[in-house]
Design a protein around this nucleic acid. Structure first.
Lengths: 318, 318
DNA sequence: CTGAAAGCGCTAACAA
DNA sequence: TTGTTAGCGCTTTCAG
C-alpha cells in the first residue's frame, strides 16, 4: 500500500496539486465548491501530508525536544507532562531524551534530539562545561536553558533562583529553633546542588554545625542511608536536595518512629505531587510558568534571560 | 546563518555531494584519504545531515511514538523512561503524547504522533471503539498495541493478562482469610478495569459481598474517598485498580491508624517504584520485557500477538 | 481562482 | 573510487 500524496488527491479531485495544497493550508484563494470537494476527499482518505516534505521546504518541524536527567523522577515527568499540555495547544509535539543521571549523557541526549530535527531544545545543564552549548549556538540550533543561569553567556534562559529557594528553608528551620542541620544533597558538581547548599547556609545563618551528605538522587538510597545511620539524634532538621530524596527520608524516619515535623524537621525541594502525599514542606518551583515562558521564547525565537523565584510551601514535615 | 548542507561540505572538500553522502553513510567506496579529509571537515563544522531530507528520500524517521493516558502516573513515566533506554540503544528517539485521562484524547494523541511522522506508534487502547485503530491500519501507519488483546483483529499486540494478575490478588486475599473486599477501581468503561474486576472475583471466589467503587485514577481522590468513608470496618481487604490509587489508600488508612497488612489487606497493580516505598503488595507488569518485544516488532515490522503474564509481588500491605 | 515550474537536502541508480 | 541524474512530497513564485 503506497503512501498517499498530494498528487493522488489532486488526481482524484481533478485539480492540480497546488489547489490541494492551498486547501490544506487554508489559503483563501480557492473556490468554495472546489474546496469542499477536496476536503471531502481528504477526509475520506484520511490524508496526512508528509511533514518531512514540508520541513524540507523550509517549514518548522513543530517538534520540541526536552532533555531531563531522569524521567522517573516525578519532578521531570510532571514537567514533561506540563510541557506536552502547553505545546499540544500550539500543535507542537514533544520529543524527549534522558541523560539517566549521567552528566556526560547530556551531550548525547542533546545530540539525539538535534539529529531528530526539533525546532528547539529545552534542557537544564548539569555541570559547568558549556562547550556543547556553544556548539548548539554555532550550528544554529535553537534552544532554551531551563533552571540555570549563565550571566556571561548569550544563552536564552528561563532560570530559577535556587539559592533564594534554599534560603527560605534555612531561614524557616532557624526560626523554628533548629540548630543541628543535616543536608542530604545530590551530585556535588551540579550547580543546582551548589546553589542550594549556599542558599540554605545563608538562611540558616548558624553555619558551623551543618553536615552535608551527597547521595544519589533516589528515595531508596536516602532511605537506606538514614536507616543505617545510627546517630540520627545528632540532627534536628534535614534539608533534602529534592522531594524525591525527602520522601525516602520521611519513610526511613517513620520506620524509626521519628515523626517528621514533631521530632525532626524535614524539607525538600521541587514540590512534586507526592510532596503533598508525604506532608512535605518544600520549595515550589513554578514549572508551568517557566515552561510557558520557554515555549513563548521558542515560538517567537526571542533571546531573553528570565528569572523565576520559587516559594516556600509549608506542610506537616516542618 | 544559513543551514549547512552536504553541498557546502562538498565544495569545501572539493568533491561531489555524493562522496560526502557516502562518508556520512559509511559506504566503503571512498578513498581513505578523501574520507579522512571529509570527516575532518564534517567534525570541524559540526555537520548534522537534515533528517527530513533523508526521510523524504524514503528512509525511516527513527522516531517512535507512544501514547499514554497520564504521564504523571509513575507507571507511565517509568514506562516511557524504559522505552527511551531501549530505543536509545537503537538510535531511535521517543515522542510521546498524553491523553490526559480522557478516552476521547486517544484519537487526538495518536493523530498528533502520526502528524509528526513516527515509524511506529505504541499505545494502550482505552475503550472498545476500534475505528481509529482500523484507520491507522488503512493509512499504513505502523503501530503496536500495548496491554490490550483484540482476538478478532489483525493488530500487532504485546498484551498483558490483566485477568490473571487480578486473579492472583483475589486468590491471595481469600487464602489470607479475607471475606469483605472493597474494590477501588478506575474508569468502568476501560477493558483493563473490567478484566481486573473479573479476575479478582474469580480468584476471590466468594463473590457476594464485594463492593466496587470507581474513582479517578489519582492518589488524592482515593485518599479523600477513604478519609471521608465512615465505615471502613465493613471491609477487611482493598484491591486497588493500580498502585497510584493504592498509595492514596495506604496514606488514608495510616492517618486513621489502620495498619495495612495488619488491620486490613491492601493491594495494587503495576508495581511502580513507589510500591516498594509504600510496602505495597501488587501485581508486577513486566514492562521492560513488553517494550523490548514491542520495539523488536517495530524494527522488524512483524505482525504478532504476544501475551505476557504478570506476577504477584508480596510486601507488607498484604 | 488555478496551474506549471523550480527546488528544499538528500540518496539510489547508473555512468565514467 | 568518484560524479551525474533524477526524484522523494511539498510549497513558493510567477504566470495565466
Amino acid at each position: 500500500m503506497k503512501k498517499l500524496t498530494l498528487k493522488d488527491i489532486a488526481i482524484e479531485a481533478g485539480v492540480s496539486v497546488m489547489t490541494v495544497s492551498r486547501v490544506l493550508n487554508n489559503n483563501k484563494n480557492v473556490h468554495p465548491q472546489t474546496r469542499e470537494k477536496i476536503e471531502e476527499i481528504l477526509r475520506k482518505r484520511n490524508f496526512v501530508p508528509d511533514p518531512s516534505a514540508r520541513v524540507l521546504k523550509g517549514g518548522k518541524t513543530s517538534r520540541i525536544g526536552i532533555v531531563v536527567s531522569d524521567i522517573k523522577n516525578p519532578f521531570y515527568s510532571e514537567m514533561i507532562g506540563t510541557l506536552e499540555d502547553i505545546a499540544g495547544k500550539k500543535q507542537i509535539s514533544v520529543v524527549f531524551a534522558d541523560t539517566n543521571m549521567r552528566t556526560e549523557g547530556e551531550v548525547e541526549a542533546i545530540n539525539s534530539l538535534v539529529k531528530t530535527s526539533v525546532d528547539s531544545v529545552l534542557f537544564a545543564p548539569e555541570g559547568f562545561n558549556t562547550e556543547h552549548i556553544d556548539n548548539l549556538l554555532s550550528i544554529g540550533q535553537h534552544f532554551v536553558i531551563l533552571g540555570v543561569h549563565f550571566p556571561d553567556k548569550k544563552y536564552p534562559e528561563v532560570w530559577i533562583d535556587d539559592e533564594a529557594g534554599a534560603y527560605m528553608i534555612g531561614d524557616h528551620f532557624r526560626k523554628k529553633g533548629a540548630e543541628k542541620p543535616l543536608l542530604l544533597m545530590g551530585n556535588p558538581h551540579k550547580n543546582t546542588t551548589i546553589n542550594r547548599i549556599k542558599g540554605f547556609k545563608n538562611g540558616f545563618t548558624e553555619m558551623s554545625k551543618e553536615f552535608i551528605e551527597y547521595l544519589p538522587v533516589d528515595w531508596k538510597c536516602c532511605e537506606d542511608y538514614l536507616t543505617n545511620n545510627k546517630n540520627l539524634n545528632s540532627y534536628d532538621c534535614i534539608f533534602c536536595y529534592n522531594d524525591l530524596i525527602a520522601m525516602g527520608a520521611v519513610s526511613a524516619l517513620r520506620k524509626k518512629n521519628i515523626i517528621p515535623g514533631k521530632d525532626i524537621l524535614v524539607a525538600g525541594f521541587d514540590d512534586i505531587s507526592y510532596a503533598e502525599l508525604f506532608g512535605l514542606t518544600t520549595v515550589k518551583i513554578p514549572v508551568q510558568d517557566m515552561l510557558e515562558t520557554a515555549i513563548d521564547m521558542v515560538v517567537d525565537s526571542k533571546y531573553q534571560k528570565i528569572k523565576f523565584v520559587p516559594n516556600l510551601v509549608i506542610r506537616d514535615s516542618a
